[in-house]
Design a protein around this nucleic acid. Structure first.
Lengths: 251, 251
DNA sequence: CGTTAACTTGAATTTTGTCAATGCCTGTGG
DNA sequence: CCACAGGCATTGACAAAATTCAAGTTAACG
């Protein structure tokens, strides 16, 4: 009952035919809404809250997490530019959303989102596609966690970050890493020490090169991919299908 | 791009009003289809296959898994009675489906499933609800894997099996465990030895009692739940919402 | 009833977590 | 602009947990 991430086509899948103001896109629903912003550390909504709005992230990164009874925190995903979060058929927020960096976003009421989506077959299709992406992402994450090695997890994470950053067209000489080591650890089911050691190790082997604390360069992407378990190399598949990124919503 | 499990209301969420033959349910789509059956070990579809059909599982259990490049197998979920598998907007199967025990099922063409679902708002809603359940399940699984202990994972798994078995109304004095230890290990990201040791340990502590190799009794459900990490105890919430169980489908 | 595959058990090894101390950014205030 | 402080990250030594390797047992099936 939770969250994650997904693929998208934020930049330009807008009307191909000129002069068509009505674009059938989930992102279009947020068009007229006022811009809001969140300072780092600010909370957008809490786990268990009744979910009232759906948000479109325009800039910045949020962490989506749940706290287990014994206090452990699990970050189910990071929401970034182009993601839609807070979505759900009804009920409560399955996770807390908190700004990592400064975030700007738009919101609409959840019931309105639902009504508009249901009214349009195109939007419904897009919504379903996005949900499928969402499940895919969640299961990829589960697979990442099921793989034993700490190194595989870290490399897998970096690889995803790289791909996601490169999505916008900008090649990935150096990728941003706005979240803390603690965030990464809680996302990968490791301790910060293990994450740190793995980073150090990868650096010494020349796979990555840290650039300050919140960015790094991928020196050997191929090696990184191999260490991550070679993935399925399904990189070049379902991008730009019109599916919106979305994350975090009640069951 | 994968699979898992989800919640459902197979038995009787049928028409409340008598004499209403047209029940708006995803399961209803399979009504007229011929019964098929699978021997243990038989494969229903392969990871990477073009997905042509959607299946309703009537009896038995299937494992849904992916093989990583290095040969490791990850069981993303088990499909059981009431689950719908093979579903997807399009593309390919994200996982292999293989019968664990003898399985009986029905199938319909994927495109027909899609057309019928899209034509009915009620079915669309049910489909979306099922997808949400699916994500929820995937993320619960991810959380299970992110939590460190082997014991927590095994107990969490047993708990889910218990709940799922009890769903049909039958109380869970003894629950079936048709899958092998290897299957369980590959599902939980552990080795068979660790799973076996954990079972032994739980038995010695009187929490469970094995009944042959493919069933066991839960002697102390409360202890089991506690060892599993107490979950969120959200047991009593979203059951019987009309959402179909579904699992495994392309992105 | 015997064969075989699945499961259990044990000991050694590796990996990761834990505890503790040090070092280094970052952002504040002089 | 530089100095300083405090949080965050790194590093090391040790302990705990899980995996690996290697037998033994047991249950399922013919």
């Amino acid at each position: 009952m939770i969250i994650a991430s997904a693929v998208s086509s934020l930049p330009g899948h807008a009307p191909i035919l000129a002069g068509a103001p009505a674009e059938p896109s989930l992102h279009g629903l947020f068009a007229g809404q006022p811009l809001e912003s969140l300072e780092p550390g600010a909370t957008l909504f809490w786990e268990g809250d009744r979910s009232r709005h759906v948000f479109e992230v325009l800039k910045g990164v949020l962490r989506l997490y749940r706290i287990l009874p014994d206090g452990r925190r699990i970050i189910v995903g990071f929401a970034q530019e182009g993601d839609i979060i807070g979505l759900a058929p009804d009920e409560h927020c399955p996770a807390t959303a908190e700004a990592v960096s400064e975030v700007s976003l738009r919101r609409i009421e959840r019931c309105r989102f639902r009504a508009l989506t249901e009214a349009s077959p195109a939007l419904t299709r897009e919504f379903i596609a996005a949900l499928c992406e969402e499940v895919a992402a969640a299961q990829e994450h589960a697979m990442l966690l099921a793989r034993r090695g700490a190194e595989e997890r870290v490399c897998g994470f970096l690889l995803r970050q790289m791909q996601r950053f490169a999505e916008g067209g900008k090649s990935a000489a150096s990728i941003p890493l706005p979240m803390s080591r603690t965030d990464i650890a809680d996302h990968l089911g490791l301790t910060i020490e293990t994450v740190s050691r793995t980073f150090t190790n990868l650096t010494q082997r020349g796979v990555i090169a840290p650039e300050g604390r919140h960015a790094l360069a991928i020196r050997r992407p191929a090696t990184l991919a191999r260490l991550a378990g070679a993935e399925d190399d399904t990189d070049t598949s379902p991008r730009g299908t019109g599916a919106a990124r979305l994350a975090a919503w009640p069951h």
